[in-house]
Simulated scan of single mutants.
Amino acid sequence: MDDLDRRIVGALLANPRATNAQISDAVFTSEATASRRVSRLIAEGAVRVIGVLDGEATARSRSLFVRLRCRPGDGNRSAQRLAAWPECGSVKLVTGSVDCVAEINYTSNDHLLAITLEQLPSLDGVLAVWSNQVVRRFATPHSWLPELLSEEIAAQLRSQRFDPWRDPLPGDLVRLDALDERIADALAGDGRLGWQQLADRCDASPVTVRRRAEAMFGSGALRMRAVVDPESVGLPVNAFISLSVNPTQLGRAGEMLAEHPSTLMISATTGDRNLCGEVALSSDAALYEFISSAIGGLPGLQHADVAVALRSVKRAGLLRDLAVKKPGAAVRLRG
């Protein structure tokens, strides 16, 4: 990506459904150029814009972080098999005390029981499993915005959103009907569909689908997200952090990390670690600074484990088909 591409990606991260006119104003280019660049970036797979039904707001699912230790030589195979699970949203091969980390969605306690006590231990090559249930989200990928734009421009783009980008979400649980489901499914495939396009796919009028979509946006039931590989915007060092913090300081520590521009997500969890998340940085030096300052300066910190990602097998529900990658070849995405 060149500098203009990166600024356009920054605009899409700030407001995934920003119009081409809004993007052109934010990145100081013509609307025609912004439209052409956005189309190319999406067509090339450099960025995806998707709608996501929030499991918490709709009471459909909850999240679980898992860390796996595998037999030598089996880590990649175990990660690929885990990534094939439909309830698995992301999987990474990492360095450190574990070999693989993943985020899994579960729908009930019985589902969670099956995942943790049966399915994960039965994965070929897995020697040990640690699981951490998410109990409060401080930041999710919906709010991730690396320093690609000025704070003023980023704030302006965010103010134009209909959906909440901060966590926790406001309001009560939301119930959806069949039309809501069709709208959400269409936006999950292409989050930048216009109202007429969306209406055609959902067999309803543009006025109706817009009203329904904006109602879901406002409640937090449907949230928009631009999915970008951090490496493509100059952040090649991706790491999973799992921390132990004094419970009396847990909220403050989570809020501090949520405000850091390197944080993709951070949540309070149950289990052996009570604060888990993901960060993306520009270099090992930046990671050292993050560990020593951002993590080291957290109130109540008792233990910190940082596992650097070696390979992202799945991100935002999309498998990265790395098995066919040859030296010098581009990574092919398949969904």
Rank of each mutant, 00 (worst) to 15 (best):
Q156G: 03
A79H: 09
K92H: 15
E231N: 11
N76L: 03
M265E: 11
A221D: 04
R320G: 03
L235F: 01
L120Q: 05
E147V: 10
R332S: 09
L53M: 06
D5L: 00
N109F: 12
D74K: 12
E31K: 12
R137D: 07
P16F: 05
G171F: 01
A239M: 08
V279Y: 01
M1E: 03
M224L: 15
L68R: 07
A188T: 08
Q249C: 13
E231D: 13
T248Q: 14
L123A: 03
I241C: 11
N246P: 09
R17C: 07
A186T: 05
L157K: 06
V279D: 08
A57G: 02
P86S: 10
K92V: 13
G254M: 11
Y106D: 00
G89A: 12
S122Q: 14
S122W: 03
I183A: 00
V101K: 08
E214R: 04
E152T: 12
V38Y: 02
H303K: 11
L4I: 14
A188H: 06
L179Y: 06
D229Y: 01
A280I: 01
L120G: 02
S35Y: 12
S159G: 13
S131P: 07
Q197W: 01
R252Y: 09
P261N: 00
I183C: 03
A21W: 12
A128L: 13
A43L: 04
Q249A: 15
L319R: 12
R7N: 04
W144S: 05
L82P: 01
L298D: 05
V308A: 06
L127F: 10
S61A: 15
S283Q: 11
Q133E: 15
L198H: 03
G189H: 14
H142T: 05
E56G: 06
L64Q: 04
I23A: 05
G189V: 08
R62E: 12
A204V: 04
T270Q: 12
L243Y: 01
S97G: 07
V66R: 02
R320S: 10
A294N: 06
T270N: 08
F138V: 06
S122H: 11
A286G: 00
V227D: 06
T19V: 08
V237C: 00
G254F: 03
E103C: 06
D190L: 04
H111W: 07
W85C: 11
A84D: 14
F65S: 03
N20G: 12
D3E: 15
N132D: 13
I42L: 11
D180C: 08
L127A: 14
C202M: 00
D272C: 09
L318M: 13
C276F: 04
A128D: 15
D99F: 04
P247H: 14
L281M: 13
R48W: 15
T140I: 05
D284Y: 11
A188Y: 05
K314V: 10
H142C: 01
T95P: 02
F162P: 02
A154Y: 03
L148K: 04
L322G: 00
P236C: 10
A253F: 06
A46P: 06
Q197A: 10
Q22F: 05
M256D: 03
P327Y: 10
S262F: 12
R17V: 09
L310T: 11
P168V: 12
V324I: 03
R211Q: 13
V324W: 11
P261M: 00
W85V: 11
I241T: 07
N132M: 09
I8W: 07
E259D: 10
G335S: 13
